[in-house]
Amino acid sequence: MYMTKEETEAHYGPMVRFYKEKPNAIIWHTYPVKENFTTYFFSFDQKIIYEFWEDFPQNLTREEVYLFTKENPRMAELRGCRIIHGQLICE
């Protein structure tokens, strides 16, 4: 379930700073200092942090799922979401 930054750090340990993969990206990424490669964290506002495997797509709004899928199509495809002709499809 998505958590605040403070809750995430209490559970997983300190997070590295937020970063964007591209300058014009909407989504912020972060990960625990104790690099745990089984987790994939992201945020839209740097306040609420989502864990991909637990939260995507069910704990995001439809708009957030669309934005994530648009920026990270390969990751979204792992959870059955893609954009076809501008329409979000999640299986």
Rank of each mutant, 00 (worst) to 15 (best):
Y2S: 03
M3S: 06
M3L: 12
H11D: 09
Y12V: 00
M15V: 04
V16L: 15
F18R: 03
F18N: 09
Y19S: 07
Y19D: 04
Y19H: 09
K20A: 02
E21V: 11
E21H: 11
E21R: 14
K22V: 03
P23M: 10
P23Y: 08
N24A: 11
N24I: 09
A25S: 15
A25T: 02
A25G: 05
W28P: 04
Y31E: 10
Y31P: 01
P32I: 04
P32W: 10
V33A: 10
V33W: 11
E35Q: 13
N36Q: 02
F37E: 05
T38C: 10
Y40L: 14
Y40S: 09
D45L: 06
K47A: 04
I48K: 05
I48S: 04
I49V: 15
Y50V: 01
Y50H: 06
E51F: 03
F52K: 07
F52D: 05
W53L: 14
D55N: 08
P57K: 08
Y66R: 07
F68S: 08
K70D: 01
E71Y: 03
N72K: 03
E77V: 03
E77S: 13
L78S: 11
C81K: 01
I83R: 00
I84N: 03
Q87T: 11
Q87N: 14
L88S: 07
